[in-house]
Design a protein around this nucleic acid. Structure first.
Lengths: 228, 228
DNA sequence: TTTGGCAATCTGGTCCAACCAGATTTCAGC
DNA sequence: GCTGAAATCTGGTTGGACCAGATTGCCAAA
């Protein structure tokens, strides 16, 4: 099949070929043949999938999909593989993102270093130039939000939050296809930056909160609208 | 060596045998011999470790420890393996836990079902009996806190938070060795439960906040005190 | 027809022996 | 001491093999 990143592809395949009734997926040997790789290769990938609690391997029985996978890693993986995401879980992940980032804005406004501000300025500059050139925003949005989390100086926090953005990877270009959305988002980013630079924790938090309403609304519309 | 849960043992071994200068660990073949398992076994485990960003495998070169591993999964894994935890990262993880659980208390007080309350009552009952019998609390604490997160009805949130508790697994018996601490903790749990049952989100949140101050203080003391 | 039980088959778990090609190390020759 | 080529080491990948329990299918008995 492909050659790299067997992980998302295998995950995708498992979810398109498992037995609806039992939850059982094709055997290791079948998977190996399907992907034209060795069984060891498959087992290595399955070990990761199992560690992510996406899959359960039962000795001498088979490989079974976890009844209801619910971790941001899993969601990110599925998104990367182009798999349809469970609307409920997207909603849950977005809620968690809100929890994280609103708090991050507060903490960052208190702890951000000049280095953080420099990077944020750089990111905002890039956004500005792209918008001026009529290009859609893309990774600038992710960079901005992640830099704020980084500015909390909490590396564990940062790692955890990083996972979300793989999830939105395929959605961002769609989200920013509308130029108005890009402009509005950028304007809000500027406001947040100012509030943080003034070390106004409450304002930063409030602005981030309203900013994320937009994102939440987008995903919500996506969910209630059509699924696929 | 052992026979099950190679993951934590391997992680532990890597961290006690890597080359300080280069960060390089023993080769797969050496590891296989050390643990008396096959190379495939080692590779499977290393794949998970790599997915966790604890380790980096460079083709034809070697296995290297990530410069600074910072994810709750990694911390939990280290704790499980009895590895010394980086004080800074413990502190970061505890901060993240506070962020999560205070918000969880708020959401749970609004969304908890009767089933959640039943389970909480059951947990509190168990705590009560253990304290009455003069036994130290243990998993009851974890169960209580996790049930609150579950009561947010956000399964992704729940999964993410579950990771913490593996981290404290070895610490809890020490923490509750002092009977007074157990009693105080239980009393606070009761207060939190009441607030949640009255659907008082603000109070729940506030009580959880002060409750977690204690935990934070404990870890902080542990950090500033001695490290090992 | 239904049921019970046994045997063939399948499955994950584990191990071993190879080969590849690039990275690393070793060491002879200058 | 330095250089460069050869020996060695390393992860990546494959194939085959064996084990023992789980699963399945089939046939005979009720």
């Amino acid at each position: 099949m492909s050659e790299k990143n067997l992980l998302p592809e295998l995950a995708a395949f498992l979810y398109t070929s498992f037995n609806e009734a039992s939850g059982r997926t094709p055997s290791e040997r079948e998977l190996a043949e399907h992907f034209s790789v060795s069984r060891g290769q498959i087992r290595e990938t399955l070990a990761i999938l199992e560690a992510m609690q996406i899959v359960e391997r039962r000795a001498k029985s088979g490989i079974f999909l976890t009844t209801r996978t619910a971790s941001v890693e899993a969601l990110a993986l599925f998104a990367k593989a182009g798999l349809p995401l469970d609307p409920v879980q997207i909603y849950e992940a977005v809620e968690l993102r809100k929890i994280h980032e609103i708090k991050a804005a507060e903490l960052a406004s208190l702890r951000a270093t000049e280095e953080n501000f420099d990077r944020l300025r750089d990111i905002l500059g890039r956004s500005e130039r792209r918008l001026a050139a009529g290009e859609p925003l893309a990774e600038e949005d992710r960079d901005f939000h992640l830099e704020i989390v980084r500015a909390t100086q909490n590396t564990v926090f940062f790692r955890v939050c990083s996972v979300y953005y793989a999830m939105g990877e395929r959605r961002l270009p769609i989200y920013f296809a509308d130029p108005e959305r890009g402009k509005r988002s950028h304007a809000e980013h500027l406001q947040i930056f100012d509030a943080m630079h003034k070390r106004d924790a409450n304002l930063s938090q409030a602005l981030m909160s309203t900013h994320l309403q937009g994102v939440e609304g987008y995903w919500k519309g996506l969910i209630t609208g059509h699924k696929s």
